[in-house]
Write a protein that binds this DNA or RNA. Structure first.
Length: 333
DNA sequence: AACTTGCACAACCGCATCGGT
DNA sequence: AACCGATGCGGTTGTGCAAGT
């Protein structure tokens, strides 16, 4: 009697995501917002398990994700945070809002761990090395425990601020960068940029992409024909028109990059269905199903108030962090 | 040119945790 | 309190590419 599979494995597609799938997923999330992942495959016709959809969204498609080379500052942050928190990638990622935990984890595993090992090798030929993070966790010092607690408090503050949608009423008062692009443009545009980038890579890396596109278009087509897609909206508002094989061919041909500009296809077509779309700010993917201030104004508890007040006084948190016991934390490598 | 090796990163898997009933 | 489903998280694997031989 084994653990039941997270989803019906039969007919579930695995492997890399195609641009068509990406667009279907983004379109769906635009309409319904992130969350209720279980319903995503059935409602979109995607032959993916719910986990896969969530992962794809959180790691690649959601707005505000920065990809590519890590800056030196980011690198230092990661090293520092890893020393403090261990392999709690999600917690570390909360300090680097534009990076995903998966990204940070990969970067750590492929670059930083080796780098540190090397450095350490130069420093001393001591025996404690390498698996520092796991071994260090076992001999957790009091100082580290306290810092870990601090980090948890930080995360609690952040979560609280997000939950209260503070930035909505007065973005300048919010000291903690929300997980949104800093630019004034629509954050969905960022999502489109992500897709643009993916499509461009797709084109660059795969000369047979259009062929694949076509083969995948069966899936897409069937999903497009699936009346359950975009339930609640008329077929004419399908939002998926760009995902037709023809649509893709037109994107791919004539050097048409998939830019935020032409991504207006999504915006124009799907906008009427977006409860969160704000014509001035663009579409804001608010933290998943978190209530806004207007929706439910909850009186602060003492703790919430404390966390909230404290958060406002913590703009230089990042630097504090960097200044915080580097020497000590270095011991954990 | 063919093959091997190493690297980078996307994606999967399974356990942990949370929230509702 | 116990159960169950949904989601989150971290470890690991698979795959494609580039560099080296």
């Amino acid at each position: 009697m084994g653990r039941p599979p997270c989803c019906d494995k039969i007919g579930v597609k695995k492997g890399p995501w195609t641009p068509e799938e990406d667009i279907i997923l983004v379109s769906y999330i635009q309409q319904h917002g992130p969350g209720n992942w279980r319903a995503v495959p059935s409602n979109t016709g995607l032959l993916r398990c719910s986990k896969s959809c969530r992962l794809r969204w959180t790691n690649y498609l959601r707005p505000g994700i920065k990809r590519g080379n890590f800056t030196e500052h980011e690198e230092k942050m990661i090293i520092h945070l890893q020393a403090l928190l261990g392999n709690r990638w999600a917690a570390i990622a909360s300090y680097l809002p534009q990076r995903t935990d998966n990204d940070i984890k990969n970067y750590w595993n492929t670059h930083l761990r080796k780098k540190l090992k090397k450095l350490q090798g130069n420093d001393e030929n001591s025996t404690q090395e390498g698996e520092s993070s796991s071994s260090s966790q076992s001999n957790f010092s009091k100082g580290q425990w306290e810092r870990r607690l601090q980090t948890d408090i930080h995360m609690a503050r952040k979560a609280l601020c997000e939950a209260l949608s503070l930035d909505k009423s007065d973005s300048s008062a919010n000291p903690i960068p929300a997980q949104q692009p800093v630019t004034g443009s629509s954050s969905y545009a960022s999502s489109a940029e992500n897709i643009s980038r993916l499509l461009q890579n797709w084109m660059k890396n795969s000369p047979k992409s259009s062929e694949l596109s076509r083969s995948n278009s069966e899936t897409t087509q069937s999903s497009l024909n699936n009346p359950s897609i975009g339930s609640g909206s008329s077929p004419s508002e399908g939002t998926l028109s760009a995902a037709t094989p023809e649509g893709f061919d037109s994107f791919f041909s004539e050097g048409n990059a998939f830019t935020p500009e032409n991504s207006a296809i999504f915006q124009v077509e799907s906008k009427p269905n977006f409860p969160n779309m704000n014509s001035e700010n663009g579409y804001l993917f608010q933290a998943e199903s978190k209530p806004s201030l207007e929706d439910s104004q909850v009186p602060f508890t003492l703790l919430e108030k404390w966390l909230f007040d404290d958060a406002i006084n913590a703009p230089a948190q990042e630097d504090q962090f960097m200044a915080m016991g580097l020497g000590e934390s270095a011991d954990f490598f």
